[in-house]
Structures are given as structure tokens and as C-alpha cells.
């Protein structure tokens, strides 16, 4: 299968729709032979970002679409999350306050902190009235799935 290849799904701003995203990610992982550990880490990171969008991007309870583009490349997988909610650059998210000895951390910021460690790159752009958040996980995709064995590709 020639790369890059993009799968595209649209979900509503409803946590029940996260299951559709899981299915799409797993299908991509299987089709391109993504290593299990890389897929796991990318899935958690995507879940964190999309869950944040669902919870905080819009003030009311109206239905909105969230568009997700999953692109398999030779050197990894890129997931772009597009929403028309309020501007939010996850790279700017405030660092969690340092936990004092004997104190438990507060929940806020844990998801973003984890996301930064789970993927190799987080890119963000505001285009028109939309947030484009892109997570990149570098990994070798399976040779069988990406047309390996074709020695001409090496030159």
C-alpha cells in the first residue's frame, strides 16, 4: 500500500463517539503494521486531545463536528484534529503547579503533560475559525503492509 495514506473520520462532540475514533485508529494500526506500543501511546494522546476538545472547546451543549485525519507515513503516523471551538494551543497549556511534598497533584494538566511525553511532536495552527492540532508519532510501519520487498524503493 503506497504511503502516505490518510483516513478521515468525523465525530460529534460527544464522549460516546470516542469509540468510533478508537476503531479508526485500530484499523489504521492493523493496516499499516504499526507497532503495538506506538499505537497504544498515540491512541492515548489522541484521546486526551479529543476529550479536551469535547469538554472545553464550546461553551454550550450544541452539537459540533470534530474532524480527524489519520495519516500513515513511512516514518510514522500523524493525527490531525480539527474543531471550530475556542482557540486552544495545547503546547501553551500551563504547566501544572509543582506538587508540594506530602500533597497530591491536582487533576488539571495531567492529560496535556502525558500527551507531550506520548508523542514525538505536537503542532498547532489556528486557521480561520478552526483549531488544527497535529500529533506525530514516529515509528517504523510494517514492511508487509507498506509494500516492503520492493528493493527499488531503497535507492
Amino acid at each position: 500500500m503506497p504511503l502516505p495514506q490518510t483516513a478521515h473520520i468525523v465525530i460529534r462532540n460527544d464522549v460516546a463517539d470516542l469509540a468510533a475514533l478508537t476503531t479508526a485508529m485500530e484499523r489504521m494500526g492493523a493496516e499499516h503494521g504499526m507497532p503495538e506500543r506506538s499505537l497504544f501511546q498515540l491512541q492515548v494522546a489522541v484521546d486526551e486531545i479529543v476529550s479536551n476538545v469535547i469538554k472545553y472547546a464550546w461553551p454550550g451543549a450544541d452539537a459540533h463536528d470534530i474532524e480527524i485525519r489519520i495519516t500513515a507515513r513511512h516514518d510514522g503516523v500523524e493525527v490531525e484534529i480539527i474543531d471550530d471551538g475556542r482557540m486552544f494551543d495545547p503546547r501553551d497549556a500551563p504547566k501544572r503547579d509543582k506538587t508540594l511534598p506530602g500533597q497530591r497533584p491536582r487533576p488539571g494538566g495531567v492529560g496535556v503533560r502525558m500527551t507531550k511525553q506520548l508523542v514525538d511532536r505536537i503542532d498547532y495552527a489556528r486557521m480561520g475559525d478552526r483549531n488544527h492540532t497535529t500529533l506525530t508519532k514516529l515509528c517504523a510501519l510494517g514492511p508487509a503492509a507498506s509494500g516492503g520487498g520492493n528493493e527499488q524503493d531503497r535507492t
Binding site: 492515548v44 484521546d47 486526551e48 487533576p107 495531567v110
Partner: peptide, 16 residues
């Protein structure tokens, strides 16, 4: 098999 920070939030709230 899988969890996100939503689980951590629950654990912190429940521990309190």
C-alpha cells in the same frame, strides 16, 4: 488495558 487521564481524575477525586 487502556486508560487516559480521565481515570487519574477519578482516582484523585475518590482519594480525597
Amino acid at each position: 488495558l487502556y486508560l487516559t487521564s480521565a481515570a487519574f481524575r477519578v482516582l484523585l477525586v475518590a482519594t480525597d
